[in-house]
Amino acid sequence: MAKQVHTKGESSIKRSRFFKHFFTYLFLIFLSLIIIYPLLITILTAFKNSDVVAFTLSFQGPWTLKNFHELFATTLYGKWYWNTLVISVATMVILVAVVTLAGYTYSRYSFAGRKWSLTFFLVVQMVPTMAALTAFYVLGMLLNGLDHYWFLTLIYIGGGIPMNTWLMKGYFDTVPYDFDESAKLDGAGNFTIFWKIVMPLVKPMIAVQALWAFMGPFGDFMLARYLLREESNLTVAVGLQEFISDPKDQQVALFAAGAILIALPICALFFYLQKYFVTGLTAGGSKG
């Protein structure tokens, strides 16, 4: 009798465990399909003839590399790509340098106005600066910065400073002050402490910051579209949209090919740096 009850209980546990596993995997697989489906459509379309009309998942050929060839031969895609790279690299280098210095200062030094200016950073970071379109336009006109990359780059850099300084400060804070003091006694000066002791320890965060700074200009539409006028001066995001912006003449295959060439390197960088993200996220998250 007792034994029967026992087996009955066991089988109900087994059954509920089966349902748990079943629905868990069902959810995970379903979600995976939803994620992969649109990406796969784009990837496959890039290798289809340029006259495809439907933007759907289809494993039927013929397959071709013609789109990629056409992209560079007949459109300004190569130029746009180069423009974006120039802006992105400049933004990345300068932004990371500026933000690292500022974050380090806020983490390591106490000085008059520190607390006040940190709060200022936090508030400024919330201002949707890109909405100040007209102001940027007039400023650009006044400084002869319209259609020039330096102007756009400066805006990207400035906009990234407050938020990223906060993140950087939060990460610098995780490096114990003991290291600085120990190095001080070892005879290290301010610069040596910064360069030889603290910097090597925040490398991961700097890599993440660099990636984000690099991706920023790739993703921006509003400013790039408004402040860059010449067709040949566009960034790749704005240019790419031209392929599909006309509902009557959508070049989906060309678009797909162009999209892949952008997404691939960024994806690769992303996954390469992925393991540092959680640390950066939680450090930044808990510090605001």
Binding site: D178, S182, A183, K184, L185, A188, L201
Partner: peptide, 19 residues
């Protein structure tokens, strides 16, 4: 400055440079 005092110190958490 600390470095000019020629002093060696052991910290509670050791402060060994992790890298």
């Amino acid at each position: 400055a600390p470095k000019d005092r020629d002093i060696a110190m052991v910290f509670q958490n050791y402060a060994l440079y992790p890298h």
